[in-house]
Write a protein that binds this DNA or RNA. Sequence first.
DNA 1: TTCTATTATTGGTCTGAGCCCATTATTACC
DNA 2: GGTAATAATGGGCTCAGACCAATAATAGAA
Lengths: 211, 211
Amino acid sequence: MRHESVGRPRSSSRNTLEDAALELFLEQGYSSTTIEHITRRAGVSRNTFFNYFEAKSDLLWLEVDAGIDRMAEELDAVPLDVSPIATLRDVMVRVADEVGADRVPLALTQGEVMRSQGEAVTSGLTRFARRADVLAGFLAPRFGTVRNDLAILAASNALAGAISAAWEVWARDGISRRPLADYVAEAFDLVVTGVAGSLDRRFPRSTHREQ
Amino acid sequence: MRHESVGRPRSSSRNTLEDAALELFLEQGYSSTTIEHITRRAGVSRNTFFNYFEAKSDLLWLEVDAGIDRMAEELDAVPLDVSPIATLRDVMVRVADEVGADRVPLALTQGEVMRSQGEAVTSGLTRFARRADVLAGFLAPRFGTVRNDLAILAASNALAGAISAAWEVWARDGISRRPLADYVAEAFDLVVTGVAGSLDRRFPRSTHREQ
DNA sequence: TTCTATTATTGGTCTGAGCCCATTATTACC
DNA sequence: GGTAATAATGGGCTCAGACCAATAATAGAA
């Protein structure tokens, strides 16, 4: 279990900025914290912020971003001739397994952020897009096609969506939550084996079948 | 085939703005067109823009937004006791069928926008989120659960992702594209019947099976 | 037609994100 | 100690998006 970018001082400024931002977001909320506030507390200049982050909202998704990076690395190392779907599941569960119970993205805990429906949602979806992109890059060659193929794109988007749902529900389940890997596995399997069957199996006595 | 909000003058200002924006985007690209440019050409004040749109990027997704609105309406009218997945498919295909071959969202045709990876992506994903939300609201009660359930969220996200893929590939296929409904049906079925089986069926001699 | 209530449009102003570029510090390496 | 690469900064700029109060326009009742 290698923690790629955890513990190691990627950069002192970067960590300082993350810490300052965390404090400020908790103190006064996300939207009323400006980048200048953050850099001032971190003791650096405003411009330095943009040496480490592309956007303020990056700070809300540090854990997710790290997870996607890890996923991309692991997938890169997978040989071409193994079963892609099974491998994908392994990798996703393994990466999720490295995420500690306390490493919840701020975006999913800060009530204000979640309710605002604005920047948080869109910034979160940026992660979805990146994940989908990584998945398409992994799947396409393994099914002997290109990443623009409808089937590949649909599958990648669907899987990325499922993983997003896993993170979201995991975060919302609060302190009593099970490990993220459980949620990821469940969501992944649902999409891989088919939404129709999965839902029917999971909710066998649902309304539409009783009529 | 009712075109909900086409042809009827929703508002003259609104249509004028849409037209002006289309012209300007084609002339000088999206990012170098400011809201002020648009309103000036439309002959209204800058503030009027925000009476009709929440963001500049709304103009890139008019057709998709209309499609989601239609979908939401249709789903609202569906009784609780019919098969939800089959109904969903019907509705999605029907709504897609109303989209003319020329009604491609600007976001998906403007090369500049697609390549920028910035605002366009995130604004597109806002649509994804709305669609997923509508789907969750439809599915949850029909499977006797709440919209926060992992299975419901994962399924909704997965389906929304598949539909996004369908729009994207449809747009990219250019003038020779088949009707959007074809793409939607294919992507939808892929997720409903399962990614694993669908990909294997579609790419039967793929690399990992030859080894 | 005139008055009125509602809705659309506008002017003015403000914050803050994100970008750019040139300059200065810092660090690492020889 | 000197040099080259990298990190940090200063300063300035554009523009989206928000807010609010004021003014038109319009529809509807009388």
